[in-house]
Amino acid sequence: MDRMHFGEHSSTQFNEALESIRNHLMEMGGLVEKQVVDALQALLQADSALAEKVIETEDKVDKLEMLIDEQCTRVLALRQPAASDLRLIIAVSKAVSDLERIGDESAKIARMGLQLAEEGESPRGYVEVRHIGNHVRNMLRDTLDAFARFDAKKALTVAAEDNEVDMEYASAMRSLVTFMMEDPRSITRVLNIIWSLRALERIGDHARNIGEQVIYLVEGKDVRHISIDEMEEKLKG
């Protein structure tokens, strides 16, 4: 699919504006990806300093979100973009809110890491966090990659991965609940892990949302709120 010809606009200023929006989105994506990785490490290794760093980064992410939104508004007002330009602006402005939420969820994980560092480690759940964390992190990387390359196929695989994450999350939840029933003294600490897993699962959902925006951007098709099979069907038709 080579319908995306950004940078060939006859107005240089328009080109620059679109280019700048894309660059800022990628910068924000990179920042958020780093947040997720650091938050996981802070939790798994009880690294309070790293957790603090993740929480501080939120401010930067929020500022980028506002900057990109402002740039999108300006392009809409001044350029009345159409077709692929319009879809780019719409997709970017939706993707930034998902990225911002991923930043929030990372900060949540970092806070859980701080608490666990203070109260002592949870007796269970680290394997699940590591496993689901890696999975979600790869999804985020892939979805950002798909955005950068306008790759709808890759974006579709992210949606499929999200289904797997949901299943892994449900299974982790069952085993942790069973464990808490057996050992009620550990409930507070295990709950911190559960909240972190919940945050990771949400990050997976946001990555999927961004992937859906990539599909809208490239193919012009709205694939939200439908199953993977229906998505594939819609992309074929």
Binding site: R3, H5, H9, S10, S11, F14, P81, A82, A83, S84, D85, L86, R87, E219, G220, K221
Partner: peptide
Amino acid sequence: TKPEHDLTEAYITG
């Protein structure tokens, strides 16, 4: 929003 032909796309987006 989603023209089918590349020439249309190129013209619409300037």
